[in-house]
Amino acid sequence: MQPEIQPGDQKRSFIEDARRGQIVAAAISTIAEIGYAKASFVQIARRAGISPGLITYHFAKREELMKQVMLTVHGSMDRALAARSEGAESFCATMRALVEGFVHYCAEHPAELIAIGQIASAARDAEAAREWYAGQAAETLAEMEAMFREGQECGELREFAPRVMAVSLIAAMEAVPAELMARPDTDVTQYAKELADLFEFAVRRA
């Protein structure tokens, strides 16, 4: 039997969740502003308006906080892409929704993309985050490959190597954040359309 949750316990849970979210948001903005190496608990606490001790209460080690940043950003991205692709009636439509949704997410969340990019390439205190990221990347590649293969089996997509196409699409998407940061005047909607067009022409059956 599960223990009964008292109202006070639930309130504390909400408060703790809100505090953890505040710390994660401060960590993201700190990394984006001064870089991963300088994003200490002291710096993060300063931006969150709390004491460093309150961070260690929720995240005993810096590594734990960095993994939570990864989880939070990718969770936010997954929800955004799922909402965009909901109702897509074909494989090409689904792919377009994912590609265009990703480009727009990158444009709307530059700090988040900078933060997870720096964490993924960090030399220390990010082992757990990097391991999770590697697993997530492998899972995403497998899902993309499976989607292409299924599209071929139902006759919507032309014949090609699903893994090669999946690797190529993911590589093109991973290049988006750097391009948008280097060229802030980019027409994001047009960029998203062009990238989606490119891969739709590459995969669809003539």
Rank of each mutant, 00 (worst) to 15 (best):
L169Q: 01
L180F: 12
E174V: 06
S168P: 08
V167R: 12
D187M: 05
T186Q: 00
D185L: 08
L180E: 05
A166Q: 02
A166K: 02
Y191E: 03
T186L: 00
A192I: 01
V188F: 00
E174H: 15
V188G: 03
E174P: 04
M173F: 14
A172I: 06
T189L: 09
A192Y: 00
M173G: 05
I170N: 03
I170F: 02
P177Q: 09
I170V: 06
L169H: 01
Q190V: 10
D187K: 04
L169R: 00
V176I: 14
R183E: 13
V176G: 05
L169M: 05
M181P: 08
D187A: 06
A171H: 11
M165P: 09
A172T: 07
D185R: 10
M173E: 13
A166M: 02
A192D: 00
A182F: 08
M173A: 11
V167W: 12
D187N: 13
L180C: 06
E179A: 08
A172C: 05
R183W: 14
R163Y: 09
M165I: 11
V188W: 00
Q190M: 12
A178Y: 11
E179P: 03
D185W: 12
D187G: 03
Y191Q: 04
Y191R: 09
E174M: 13
A171G: 08
M165V: 13
R163C: 03
M181K: 11
V188Q: 01
M181Y: 15
Q190A: 08
I170S: 02
R163D: 03
Q190L: 15
A172L: 05
T186C: 01
S168W: 15
R183L: 11
I170E: 01
P184N: 07
A171S: 12
V167F: 13
A178I: 09
A172K: 04
P184Y: 03
R163V: 07
Q190T: 10
A166N: 02
E179V: 10
V176M: 06
P177R: 09
